[in-house]
């Protein structure tokens, strides 16, 4: 039995900066998970991932990460790994948490 599709965002690391980026609805890139496009359709998600992977001058290691719709309708992580990726390390106030 095929597993039901759960919502995703397209994410990667930026080629030059190395930091975490997400794909927006317009096909651009954002540093903020909340501004990413939440993909609820599997075929859509696969297509968006292909687009991301083709942008080799911007992205490294693009993949689909699980996400859910938060109270304000914007994407939120479902797994702690993605929580760390959108925040930064817990031992120093470095990374995204310091840039917001």
């Amino acid at each position: 039995m095929a597993r039901a599709f759960t919502p995703k965002v397209v994410t990667a690391n930026h080629l030059l900066e190395g930091d975490v980026i997400y794909m927006t609805a317009s096909g651009d890139w954002t540093r903020e998970l909340r501004d990413a496009e939440l993909l609820t359709d599997e075929a859509d998600a696969d297509l968006r991932l292909l687009e991301a992977q083709q942008q080799t001058a911007v992205t490294v290691g693009a993949y689909l990460a699980d996400a859910k719709s938060g109270p304000d309708g914007r994407p939120e992580p479902t797994h702690f790994r993605e929580e760390f990726r959108r925040t930064g390390p817990s031992n120093y106030f470095h990374g995204k948490q310091a840039e917001a």
């Binding site: 900066e17 190395g18 930064g88 470095h94 990374g95």
Partner: peptide
């Protein structure tokens, strides 16, 4: 040179 969670 590795690529890690938040950076190289």
């Amino acid at each position: 040179l590795y690529l890690q969670l938040h950076a190289y």
